[in-house]
Design a protein around this nucleic acid. Structure first.
Lengths: 331, 331
DNA sequence: TCAGTCGATGACAACGTTGTCTGCGCGTTG
DNA sequence: CAACGCGCAGACAACGTTGTCATCGACTGA
C-alpha cells in the first residue's frame, strides 16, 4: 500500500479511499492510484482491514460429519450458495461423528473469528458454546438439536417420517419388521426408531427386539447386520433403515440372495429408483435444510433478535416398490 | 486481553506469553493468567495475531465445480483431511463451471489471504494468477491443467482411460459406438473424446459423428441426448460416457426401453454395480487426487522449490456387465 | 473583498497482537 | 564484595488498514 501511495504520489489514506470506492477523490487522482494498483499488483489485506474495522472475516463455519455423504454435501452446497449471496465464504470441517473432533473444529473456527457457525452436532453436550453465543456469535444447529444451549435449530420430522415408513410396511401386511441403522445414540436414529416403535405400538404389533440391529456406522456394518438378519431362523419380512448408508448396506447384503424382504429407507439416494427393485424411501430435502439454516444464521447477523427458533422440515414417503412387497397375511 | 492482564495483575505481554505457551513465566503467574482467561472467556484473536506475525490464516482455498458431485466431494474430503494434519482449514467455493464465478471466488480467497489454492479450473486462461504465484502463493490445479501459468497439476490419465473403455467395447464387437457427455471444451471431456477417437482409429473403425453427443451439462441433458440416439434410424450399439453425470443420464434414458446398447462410463459411481445391468466403468480415485494435490500444496508451503510438477493418476477399467454386451459380429 | 463553505487530501491514531529490548532482583563466582 | 549472569516481567513499537480530524486551496455570496 505504501508502494502504491508513493507511486501515485498520494497518501496512504487516499489509496485506501480509492480501493474502497469512497467518495472524495478527484477522478484524475483515483485513476493514478488505480494504475499504480494494477502495476504493482496490490491487493487489499483483508486481515488488516478486519482488524481495523473490528469486524470478522466474512466467513461462516460449517461442521458436518462427512462431505462425501450426499445428505451433507447437499446441505453444504445450499449453505455455500446463500453465503455467497451474503458475501460470505464457507469453511467446512468434517467431524466424522466424533465429539472431540467436533469440539476441536468449532474451537479452531471460533479462533479464526468466523461470523457464525452451522453445526450438525456430534457431541451430546454443547454447553461449551454458551459463552460464545452469549458473546454474540450466532450458532445454528442442523439435523440434530443441541443439548445445553438455546440456539436455532433446523430439524426434520424424524418421528413422523419413520412412522409413515412403518405404517407403509404394516399396511402391506408385514408384522416381523426389522430395523437396521446407526447407533441409537445418534439423535436422528433415536427419533426414527421412536417413530418406528410408535407406529408398531399403534398397530398393536409387538417389536421383536432381535430384529433391531442398530450400531453400524457405515455401509459395511449395515451389510453385516443384514446378513445376520437373513440367517436367522425367523428372518424379518421387512426392514426399515434409519438412513441412506444403512439402506445401501442392506441392499448390498440382499443382492444375489434368494431370500429377501421389503424395505423402506430413511433418506432418498441417487439411483434408488433405478435398482432392480426400486427402493421406497422417506424423502426430505438436504438443500432445504441448508438454506433454512443459513437463512437463520444470516438473519441473526443482520439483527434478528427473536428467541431461538426451531424449524422442522417435512418428509415425504416415496413408494417405489421395495416397500410394497407383501408380507404374510395378517391375523 | 487487557481485561485478562488487569485481572491477573500482569502486563499484556505476559498474557501473550501464557496463551502462546512461551517460556519465561513463573508457574504461579501463568496459573493466575490462565484463571483469568477462563473466567473472562478470553480467546486469542487470530486476525490480530496473523497481522502482527505477518503470516496468513492457516486456510487453503478449494475451488471446485459442485460439492454435490461425488467426484468433487471425494476430493474435498481428502484435502480437508490433509489440511487438518497440517493445521489448516479448508474454504470451499463452487464455481459451477463458470469462469467468471471461478475468478471471483479465487479473488475473494486471495483477499482473504489464504495460504494456498487448490483449483479445478473452469476458465480457459489462468494468466491472472501469474502475479499471485510469483508473489509466492502456491496454486495447484486439479483434474485439468491451467493455461498460461506454470503451476503444479494433478490430472488423471484421461486419454488412456478412454482408450481402454473404447477398446473394451470394440473387443465385444461394437463398431457403431456413440459418445455422450459434457461440452468438449471442458478439458477432461476433450481428452476422453480424444482417447475414444484414438482407439477407434487404431482399430480402423470410422467414427460416426452423428453418434457423438457432447454438450449436455447435467443428467437431464444426457438423458435427452440418449433419447435422440435411441430414436435414430441406426442407433449406436454401444455408448461411451465421458463422466458420471452423463452415465446416469444415459441409464435413466435406457430404463424401461426395450432397445438398449452397451455402455462404458468414465468415473465410477455408487451403486453402479447394483443396477439391473451393472455398469462397466473407468474407475479412478478422487481421494487420491485430493491427497496428491494437497501434498503438493503443503510441500510448497514448507519450502519445496522444484519446478512445477505434473502428476498423472492411473485409471482402471472395471468390467461389470454393461460393457460386455455383444455388438454385431465384426466384418 | 472577505468571511464562509466545500471538496480534496493528508496526518495521526488505533484495531489486538507479539517481537525486541530493557530493567529489576537475586544468586553465583572469583 | 564487586561483577556477572540469569530468570522473569514490562514498555514500546509495529503489523496493514481505516476512521477522525485537520488542513489547504478554491469558490461562493453578500
Amino acid at each position: 500500500m505504501v508502494d502504491v501511495a508513493e507511486m501515485a504520489g498520494v497518501s496512504l489514506k487516499t489509496v485506501s479511499r480509492v480501493v474502497n470506492d469512497e467518495r472524495g477523490v478527484r477522478a484524475q487522482t483515483a485513476a493514478r492510484v488505480r494504475e499504480a494498483v494494477t502495476v504493482l499488483g496490490y491487493r487489499a489485506n483483508d486481515t488488516a482491514r478486519n482488524l481495523r474495522r473490528r469486524q470478522r472475516p466474512a466467513t461462516v463455519g460449517l461442521v458436518i460429519e462427512d462431505v462425501r455423504n450426499p445428505f451433507y454435501s447437499g446441505i453444504a452446497r445450499a449453505v455455500e450458495e446463500l453465503a455467497r449471496v451474503h458475501g460470505h465464504m464457507v469453511v467446512i470441517a468434517n467431524s466424522e461423528e466424533d465429539p472431540a473432533a467436533e469440539q476441536k473444529a468449532v474451537s479452531t473456527l471460533l479462533e479464526r473469528q468466523v461470523t457464525g457457525l452451522l453445526i450438525v452436532p456430534a457431541g451430546p453436550d454443547h454447553g461449551y458454546l454458551l459463552d460464545e453465543i452469549r458473546h454474540g456469535t450466532p450458532v445454528v444447529f442442523m439435523d440434530r438439536p443441541a443439548q445445553g444451549v438455546g440456539a436455532d435449530e433446523v430439524l426434520i420430522d424424524n418421528v413422523g417420517g419413520a412412522r409413515h415408513a412403518t405404517e407403509h410396511l404394516l399396511a402391506h401386511g408385514h408384522r416381523r419388521i426389522g430395523v437396521v441403522g446407526d447407533p441409537p445414540t445418534v439423535y436422528t436414529v433415536g427419533e426414527r426408531v421412536r417413530g418406528f416403535r410408535e407406529a408398531m405400538a399403534a398397530a398393536g404389533v409387538a417389536v421383536d427386539e432381535s430384529l433391531v440391529r442398530l450400531g453400524g456406522r457405515d455401509v459395511v456394518q449395515a451389510e453385516t447386520a443384514t446378513q445376520e438378519l437373513l440367517s436367522m431362523a425367523h428372518p424379518p419380512t421387512a426392514v426399515f433403515t434409519t438412513n441412506n448408508r444403512a439402506s445401501i448396506g442392506v441392499l448390498r447384503a440382499l443382492r444375489g440372495r434368494e431370500s429377501t424382504f421389503a424395505l423402506v429407507g430413511f433418506d432418498d439416494f441417487e439411483l434408488a429408483d433405478m435398482l432392480p427393485v426400486p427402493v421406497t424411501v422417506v424423502k426430505h430435502d438436504p438443500a432445504q435444510m441448508g438454506r433454512a439454516g443459513a437463512e437463520l444464521l444470516f438473519g441473526r447477523l443482520s439483527g434478528d433478535e427473536r428467541p431461538p427458533q426451531r424449524i422442522v422440515l417435512p418428509t415425504r414417503l416415496v413408494p417405489r416398490g421395495s416397500g410394497e412387497i407383501a408380507g404374510e397375511p395378517g391375523p
